[in-house]
């Protein structure tokens, strides 16, 4: 298993390089433009000069190599300097600058991480915690009332999009009942109990929206996979042997059912980093999702490229983790 992991990690490097190139080419090919959102009163020749000042007049490969140099050399060096306080070189390295804000992309991402982790990360965590018991009980008591209600709620939860549930929750809880704010305050600092309560209040609505959506999805996979395993011969054997029902369920069946669940969660965790675009927009959480979508709409290539590439790294990493977990969950799975 160790050899396998090492081999995969080494193979990940060329994979990621190829991915970074394809993303860059795709962004370059896309027909939107960084001057697209400017007022039409700005004349074409000035737009041309703006493009030139962004480096867009350079050939494609030069721009790609420049990004590579900035991402793989300059930014890590800068991080090292910040963490250790050393001075490496003359400190005049070009960092990756966003075209819209003209500030270092990495700083933007660091600034956005807290709210995204609070809202999107927490809701994903909640979804995993809630959905596994729901899935297990639904499968164990298939077609019971609990299962039927669970199926109904999760299907509705998945098929009603977040742009709708978000608005409904705002109208009910912010407008009528005035319980929760509809705008997320990113400047809020948690220092004492009162400010913690405020933080919980302002997170409540977006977290509910996202948790509902994610729970629905994961619970369905847990249920389906549990159902498969409950009918297996080994369950009957174990029952015949008089093994306690709880142990059969939670140790044997659940463990064997976790493979698709691990897959789904491993696919889901990187998406925490890419944020929840629609929900973040509706509640103005302004996390990574909002950063990404404004960058895409504004054709801010350095920002989109960096965000997407970090996202790609996480995907490759978590899919690797999933593959390793398969082997632990089911020792019969061998990769070598």
């Amino acid at each position: 298993m160790f050899n396998y992991t090492l081999r995969r990690l080494l193979f990940a490097i060329p994979t990621l390089l190829v991915i970074s190139f394809i993303i860059f080419a795709l962004l370059d090919l896309a027909p939107n433009d960084p001057t697209g959102e400017l007022p039409l009163t700005i004349p074409p020749e000035v737009r041309e000069q703006i493009r030139a000042s962004l480096g867009l007049d350079q050939p494609f490969f030069i721009r790609y190599l420049l990004w590579m140099q900035q991402f793989f050399i300059n930014e890590p060096l800068n991080l090292l300097e910040k963490m250790t306080g050393w001075q490496i070189g003359d400190g005049s390295r070009m960092r990756i600058l966003s075209w819209a804000t003209r500030s270092p992309v990495v700083d933007l991402i660091v600034e956005r991480l807290p709210q995204t982790l609070w809202v999107v990360g927490l809701s994903y965590l909640l979804a995993v915690i809630i959905s596994i018991p729901i899935g297990v009980i639904s499968a164990y008591k298939q077609y019971s009332i609990f299962d039927q209600i669970g199926t109904f709620v999760s299907m509705v939860g998945f098929s009603v999009p977040t742009f709708f549930t978000g608005v409904v929750l705002i109208v009910i809880f912010s407008s009528w009942l005035q319980w929760f704010p509809s705008v997320y305050d990113t400047n809020h600092q948690v220092t004492d109990f009162a400010s913690l309560m405020f933080q919980i209040k302002q997170m409540a609505l977006p977290v509910i929206v996202l948790t509902l959506y994610n729970t629905s999805q994961i619970a369905r996979f847990v249920r389906a996979s549990m159902l498969d395993n409950l009918n297996q011969d080994y369950v009957r054997t174990a029952r015949a042997k008089g093994v306690k029902e709880n142990i059969i369920l939670l140790v044997h069946v659940l463990r064997n059912s976790l493979i698709p669940v691990v897959t789904v969660i491993a696919l889901g965790v990187p998406t925490i980093f890419s944020g929840a675009i629609i929900t973040e927009q509706i509640f103005r959480v302004n996390g990574l999702g909002q950063l990404l979508i404004t960058a895409i709409q504004g054709a801010d290539i350095p920002l989109v490229q960096t965000l997407t590439f970090i996202f790609a790294v996480l995907i490759v990493l978590f899919n690797l983790i999933a593959d390793v977990l398969y082997g632990i969950l089911d020792p019969r799975i061998r990769y070598d």
């Binding site: 991915i19 394809i22 939107n32 989109v304 997407t308 790609a312 995907i315 490759v316």
Partner: peptide, 12 residues
Amino acid sequence: TDLFLALPLLPL
């Protein structure tokens, strides 16, 4: 599959 997962949908 990793590549497709990583591709940004909107520019694509």
